[in-house]
Design a protein around this nucleic acid. Structure first.
Lengths: 349, 349
DNA sequence: TTACTTTTTGGAACCGATTCCAAAGCCTGT
DNA sequence: ACAGGCTTTGGAATCGGTTCCAAAAAGTAA
């Protein structure tokens, strides 16, 4: 049999369609007796309202879009998981717009607010130009940025400058002075700023400790993969004097750094301290010292903020900042002053 | 201004709404001249059809559901990524139904086919009872199972028995004879069968090599986490004689096994060979020897199969089997006969 | 009881597409 | 020029909800 409609239910319960609709939407103006009648009919007919019809007539799409770069990267996946979890108990569906190229990014950022088909939009980690942010704000589509800033839009941000300082200070406190930094696709066409901010924190922590910044200790990996980080770290380790500690701007890159250490015959943390960033699911299992940033939570908070914006679209944009914290594990250790020269002699190349 | 509708376009182009609709849907019965006229109007008005209206009037939801246990586990994430990628160029949206409890599983499996709100359903890794599979098939909702079997439904399956054999044979060929197996939540209320199949393959490979199965070498982790595998492996390593190789039924569990090895002062692969299963994103970076199963591909193939079922709902169910293959890396090595006794003396406990 | 308010109810109109029938336009052959 | 067939077109009816107005029912005060 074809699925029951609201009219079938109305007929069965001996009421009008308006009344059934009111019951479905918990409208208060329904007497308890009538409500019961309608609910019985709904149960008997195994009725469940057609979402498409509901969307059309109510003029809402009950759909949230999420523009997400590199859905394959663990850190983005964890943010997405937070988003999905937070939307579980709402009437909203999510549509994932995976972005791998700048073209795609521009396409989505231009088109999604234009077409009026979403009730809300989440944009993850993608920096917007002044113009773009303004345009999205003007479009009227409720939008929240996660891990990205724009004054015209509500956003959930992470203080990556501070995170970079935390990581660097930790190494300084362990006695390291030759600290290198492996950054995450600084020159990416998306213009990700997290890596820049962490670099800034790194430089500031060094400056605070009275250590000059050495450009050759800044290894800029051209991509966010393990392989690139490995190669970049290998170069750093060939320097003389070589760094005794490396701060990688993501956990995935830290894995590459550790591989490079192994390649060079260095033991972590005895001969080289390594610290990552993100605290992805995996970091714990690798015993990786890292800076925890609330990935999952950023997704949850982003959704909550977005629901608020949907409820009150004209409220001024809000900015929520989430905390980072150091998670010391087993890939960082105090500098053993004597170790370095011996290693230098023993290690070929 | 409010978004343009199909009637606005029709008026602007000086044609009827039917004609506009035909242009939108590439219906052949439109003269080139008219088509151009309509397309110009669409461009001028920046028109894009309202999805809700389209869904309602066409009677299709253009929505695919995916029921997925433990969206937090890397292997499930990779299948999902395949699904999302394959749906990117289709008109379909995905809705993720994340399943963490049996209640949720039963709820979705009962309700989703009943309500007529999806155009198709993907079910990942969840075994169905005879009854359940029949019921879903009878419901008429096009459904494809990924990594699960039921004769009444189309499915994408992986030969895990063979995978288990591959892993075990690899260890046998390296000279190991004391091979343990750490299984993945065998007693889970979801009744996952992959772990069972891998165990079966393991036993068969042993039998083929003339080695009796030793129950104490089968460590059943009660959950699929790293921690549980670590504890289970620790127990195995306390046996005497201890296994010289461990086959973990997932890569995540293999990480736990390697931790247990480290805890016990054993070096991998010198003192203990470890092989995983899945070949998740991470395995490469851990140099983990493993059995590759096509996770991403299973998602892609699942979608393609589902689109086929949607096109021809009455065709008999198809079964697609994907291949597994051994990926030797650096956590397995030939057994060094002398190593074992020395280790046994040197290792405390 | 009556007059007036408040609560509850019925159902037509509407949301914006698709679909399909009837009609118009165009071609071809005689 | 016209019949007959094929292509192209217009637009009413439809999908299944929500919304809102008018009316019925119930409640309250006199």
């Amino acid at each position: 049999m074809a699925a029951a409609t609201i009219r079938d239910v109305a007929k069965r319960a001996g009421v009008g369609v308006g009344t059934v609709s009111r019951v479905l939407n918990n409208h208060p103006a329904v007497s308890p007796a009538t409500r019961e009648l309608v609910e019985a009919a709904i149960a008997e007919l195994n009725y469940s309202p057609n979402p498409s019809a509901r969307r059309l007539s109510s003029g809402k799409s009950y759909t949230i879009g999420i523009v997400l770069p590199f859905f394959t990267q663990p850190s983005f996946v964890e943010r997405l998981q937070g988003v999905v979890a937070a939307l579980e108990d709402t009437p909203y569906d999510v549509i994932i717009y995976n972005v791998e190229t700048v073209d795609r990014r521009n396409h989505y950022l231009r088109e999604l607010p234009q077409r009026r088909h979403l009730d809300g939009l989440l944009i993850v980690s993608l920096p917007l130009s002044d113009e773009e942010g303004q345009q999205i704000a003007r479009s009227g589509l409720p939008t929240v940025l996660i891990d990205s800033e724009h004054p015209a839009l509500s956003r959930v941000v992470i203080d990556d400058v501070y995170g970079g300082m935390l990581a660097t200070r930790h190494l300084l406190e362990l006695g390291h002075r030759d600290i290198a930094y492996v950054s995450d696709m600084l020159g990416s066409p998306f213009g990700f700023v997290a890596g820049k901010h962490r670099l800034e924190g790194y430089r500031q922590a060094l400056a605070d400790a009275g250590i000059p910044f050495r450009p050759e200790f800044h290894g800029a990996a051209v991509w966010h993969g393990v392989r690139e980080a490995r190669e970049t770290a290998a170069q750093l380790l060939r320097l003389s004097p070589r760094p005794t500690a490396i701060f990688a701007s993501s956990d995935v890159q830290a894995v590459g750094v550790m591989q490079a250490a192994q390649d060079a015959g260095l033991q972590v943390p005895r001969d080289l301290s390594v610290i990552g960033y993100d605290d992805i699911y995996l970091a714990e299992y690798l015993h990786l010292t890292t800076v925890h940033q609330p990935l999952f939570t950023s997704g949850v908070e982003g959704v909550e903020l977005l629901l608020e914006v949907i409820r009150r679209p004209d409220a001024p944009p809000r900015r929520i900042q989430l905390d980072v914290r150091l998670v010391p594990r087993q890939t960082t250790a105090p500098l053993v002053p004597s170790a370095l020269p011996i290693e230098e002699v023993m290690t070929p190349g």
